[in-house]
């Protein structure tokens, strides 16, 4: 479904701030594969997701989605088949607009000049009810009044309204309290598996990295340093991940925090 062929990205090339954020990354994701991504701060995880969604052009390599080369496709065009969620729950929704307006916007229903119909409202109600947060009774209230967890749940609904070919999650539960984070992860798993969405999820939580999905990749210094799946991943524990990470960064002073934080 997704093929990254030798992609590289250097920020501020030729200046003192030059930073090689992605270095010759190749990654193939099969249709419906759910891959978790871990790595220390600055490893290039977010940059990888931004490159896939087209926030900036890459320096070399190519990106293929569902058989189509999208290396030079504009970000908003890619967004039609790529859903995204960010760490900041404020980022995915428009706060001054109501819940139903946000959903209608994401739904892309009835063309540009269409307006919300009663049928849309009924569908939105049903979708919201699945969240179990009581949002279906507050469809006319502005999204800005919702809690972070509720906003993130709504963002998730919006990002997957039309089953995307690829879902990119960048630490989408990191800013939530543990209970809300749990709930959002549950929802994520449910939506992703029900619709068999191909998904890349960045997380700093080793447990969810190993328990969600079927494959885990570890990044460091703009490279993929480990790619765990199958039996190897079954056996792995948080401890395994940390020792793998230490081994790779050979001898450098590494604390568990670097990986976990």
């Amino acid at each position: 479904m997704l093929k990254l062929n030798h992609i590289s990205k250097t920020f501020n090339a030729g200046t003192v701030n030059e930073k090689k954020a992605l270095s010759d990354i190749s990654l193939h994701l099969k249709k419906g594969e759910f891959v978790t991504v871990i790595g220390s701060n600055g490893a290039g995880k977010s940059t990888l997701l931004n490159a896939i969604s087209g926030s900036f052009g890459i320096d070399s390599g190519s990106i293929e989605l569902d058989g189509k080369d999208i290396t030079h496709t504009k970000d908003f065009v890619r967004a039609a088949s790529i859903g995204r969620l960010f760490q900041n729950p404020m980022q995915g929704t428009a706060p001054a607009m109501s819940i139903e307006d946000n959903l209608f916007l994401a739904s892309g229903r009835s063309g540009w000049l269409g307006r919300i119909s009663e049928r849309d409202r009924k569908d939105f109600r049903e979708m919201l009810a699945v969240l179990g947060m009581g949002l279906e009774d507050r469809m006319k209230s502005p999204v800005g009044l919702l809690s972070g967890g509720q906003r993130q749940a709504l963002s998730l609904l919006m990002a997957t309204y039309h089953t995307p070919k690829l879902l990119l999650l960048d630490e989408h539960t990191a800013a939530l309290d543990p209970a809300a984070a749990e709930k959002i992860l549950e929802l994520t798993e449910k939506i992703v598996s029900e619709n068999r969405i191909t998904c890349l999820m960045i997380t700093h939580d080793m447990d969810s990295a190993l328990h969600l999905g079927s494959r885990t990749i570890m990044m460091n210094g703009g490279k993929i340093i480990h790619d765990l799946s199958g039996a190897e991943r079954e056996k792995a524990t948080t401890g395994t991940l940390i020792s793998l990470f230490k081994e790779e960064t050979c001898g450098a002073v590494v604390s568990d925090r670097m990986l976990l934080s």
Partner: peptide, 26 residues
């Protein structure tokens, strides 16, 4: 402003980050 185009316009002012990462051409 009640049409989807109008909503997109309101969202562009309300949360440009969101619109930038969506399939709407800001």
């Amino acid at each position: 402003l009640r049409t989807r185009l109008g909503l997109a316009l309101r969202a562009a002012g309300d949360n440009p980050d969101m619109v930038r990462s969506s399939s709407i051409n800001i």
